[in-house]
Design a protein around this nucleic acid. Structure first.
Length: 256
DNA sequence: AATGCGATCAACCGCACATCT
DNA sequence: CAGATGTGCGGTTGATCGCAT
């Protein structure tokens, strides 16, 4: 049995919202708060699907939303985060205050993707660039070192918490609980003790760190935190994903 | 002035997961 | 515990607009 539709299809209005409809929705939210979207059409008489109401509120009517006019800095951040996280627009938007995932997604699809393609096209690889695998690896290693530092700082129990948004994102994205904080010190120690093998590729570095983390698991230490499961995650994504997650943490910690 | 075409973006759709009953 | 319902998310669509011909 498939999942039933969120609302009856008959008599449901589609397409652009009118100012009158917006007013009705805003009034409802002011009185009842956001949530219980299924009740909105019934209580307000709006001929809109509950899902449509939620979307309209979260993407356009919610207070404090900035729309359009992306700055150069935001452009760079989106490009960087997209390379890092892929098309996880909600996660990307969480780094951009007052931006919605839909807005970021649209902006990426209409502006940034093209901009990047153009840049790529204009950048004809020079002989030195084409043979710079070593440099690239070196840069990845630098990134990992940066991530290690960031993680150590971010996980330090003495360190004040990062911004609320950062904490929320980290916690939700890794399904962490309070045990995360409790074991943070151990993870921090683990990172301290880890000496990356020289001359290794990024994936080898990550594998090494994963086994380092794994070795700690069997010792008489507090349970390893979510960070370990990041590094040991067996989701088929491989080291690339792990690397992304490390860099993600670094970005959070350094506020980019 | 009429038409075609590409760019933009608001909104919809379907899926996955969380929460409720 | 299972099914129903709510919510979040990413991909896609389609209406609209501006510009070129």
């Amino acid at each position: 049995m498939g999942r039933p539709p969120c609302c009856a299809k008959e008599g449901v209005k589609k397409g652009p919202w009118t100012p009158e409809e917006d007013l009705v929705l805003v009034s409802f939210v002011q009185e009842n708060g956001p949530g219980n979207w299924r009740a909105v059409p019934a209580k307000t008489g709006l001929m809109r699907c509950s899902k449509s109401c939620r979307l309209r509120w979260t993407n356009y009517l919610r207070p404090g939303i900035r729309r359009g006019g992306f700055s150069e800095q935001e452009d760079r951040l989106i490009v960087h985060l997209q390379a890092l996280l892929g098309n996880r627009w909600a996660a990307i938007a969480s780094y951009l205050p007052d931006r919605t995932d839909n807005d970021v997604k649209n902006y990426w699809n209409t502006h940034l993707k093209k901009k990047l393609l153009l840049l790529e096209h204009n950048q004809t690889p020079s002989p030195s660039q084409s043979s710079t695998k070593g440099k690239w690896e070196l840069r990845l290693q630098t990134d990992i070192d940066l991530a290690r530092r960031a993680l150590r700082e971010a996980l330090s129990v003495d360190r004040p918490c990062p911004s609320p948004a950062t904490t929320t994102t980290m916690i939700t994205s890794t399904a962490m609980t309070s045990s995360y904080v409790l074991s943070a010190k151990n993870v921090s120690m683990m990172l301290d003790q880890w000496a990356p093998p020289s001359g290794s590729s990024s994936s080898e570095l990550l594998t090494d760190f994963a086994s380092h983390a794994s070795a700690h698991k069997n010792k008489d230490e507090a349970p390893l935190s979510a960070i370990e499961s990041w590094l040991l995650c067996d989701d088929g994504a491989g080291a690339g994903e792990q690397h992304h997650q490390l860099l993600d943490a670094a970005l959070h910690s350094f506020a980019f």
